[in-house]
Design a binder for these strands. Structure first.
Lengths: 220, 220
DNA sequence: GAGTGGTCTAGACCACCAT
DNA sequence: TGGTGGTCTAGACCACTCA
């Protein structure tokens, strides 16, 4: 049984501590999760205990964890605890943000709904095959749906997914990504791209913010 | 001359203060910026002064402001101050995030470069005309470029912009959005969508995170 | 050197969840 | 009821910017 300090590879501030404590802590936890030293569904000690363990204040612990909660690596539930959400599963993590349409609408008191415009299987175009590293005769599910809030069209989403990962477009009800999760392990190991989603959003009703983050591959 | 409390429409916690102070403060500042009561380039008072003005601690002020900094409405510079970044310019705000490719690469010690695959003017397709609320014979700039880091292809971006907003595709060098900013006022007032960008990213090298936020139109 | 944001502390009270 | 995360405070020191 190793201590948490060991599991996340923590060392007290050396002379080379240019980074603030909360960032060093955040990176240490992040690395431990990505290495697998902290497993999904693991519960972290309480914030007060963490503060004692690492000789910092609870505020610093919270600042360290908050970034990981925001990026989806951790999950905090008031009254319950802090839990590891997911390993280095960047595809599922990234796409999970896109499922929030329904949640977003409901949070604002609007009733979300979906009209399916297309659900079919066809061959990949040469371009898609090239981009997604597929053989030219690979079959693809093509999904297209209109998203509404209180009956008002808000977005059109088009998704193309290899049938290797989604065998039947009619498996998808509300969340494409919930279905894809089933296949998580099969396509995450090699990191190959598996899906492309293409969306139009109402410019007068949405902020659309996209962020890119280069994946930092840690070898240790 | 009105006080800052008045400009952001602040009122001390009434009995109906279900939201925490830092969120109410954040919303008040956000609304003031979007209404134009706080203008771009305006400097905010120092955090210590704000804390006194609103009868809260500096930590609470910082927590309120941090969300606005993160979403690009405010800009903080150590040793200098806090400044209003942009008005209710959601198109420019959203797209500005996408310009970060070069910055991202450089931050990580990689040299970004661009290979143009297409820069042309043609007519809008019927579908595009419909989606972007254009007349059917509207002309569009079509831009397609390959993004590289240290010579390795990392992303392909395709952008389609009405010539009303971008007269010549050769005006675009590195940042499409820098060029579009010139036209900012002309297309932001009506909130019409003006552009569609379509990008492929290397699944093995990128995290791609997209967030949607419903625009909350505050009338007061 | 005065003022700014960036970090950090030790303590407090609350709402919530579990048992 | 005891532990959890969520919020908030008053104060401190630092690095930085700018005149």
């Amino acid at each position: 049984m190793s201590t948490l300090r060991e599991r996340i590879g923590w060392q007290d501030a050396g002379p080379n501590s240019a980074m603030p404590i909360y960032l060093r802590l955040r990176e240490a936890f992040k690395s431990a999760i990505q290495r697998g030293d902290l497993q999904p569904c693991d519960a972290l000690p309480g914030e007060r205990d963490l503060a004692v363990s690492f000789n910092v204040s609870r505020v610093t612990i919270r600042k360290a964890l908050s970034g990981l909660v925001e990026s989806g690596l951790l999950n905090q539930r008031q009254g319950s605890g802090t839990y590891v959400c997911a390993g280095p599963n960047r595809v599922e993590q990234a796409l999970s943000r896109l499922t929030s349409f329904s949640d977003d609408m409901r949070l604002r008191g609007l009733e979300p709904s979906v009209v399916w415009l297309k659900r079919e299987i066809s061959h990949a175009t040469p371009r898609q095959a090239m981009r997604l590293s597929l053989s030219p005769n690979e079959t693809m599910c093509r999904l297209k749906r209109l998203r509404l809030a209180n009956g008002t069209p808000m977005a059109i989403e088009t998704a193309v997914v290899s049938t290797r990962h989604l065998s039947d477009p009619y498996l998808v009800e509300n969340s494409l990504y919930a279905v894809l999760e089933i296949d998580r392990l099969s396509f995450l190991d090699n990191g190959a791209p598996i899906e492309f989603t293409h969306s139009w959003y109402r410019g007068d009703a949405y902020d659309f913010v996209a962020e890119l983050t280069l994946r930092t591959t840690t070898n240790d």
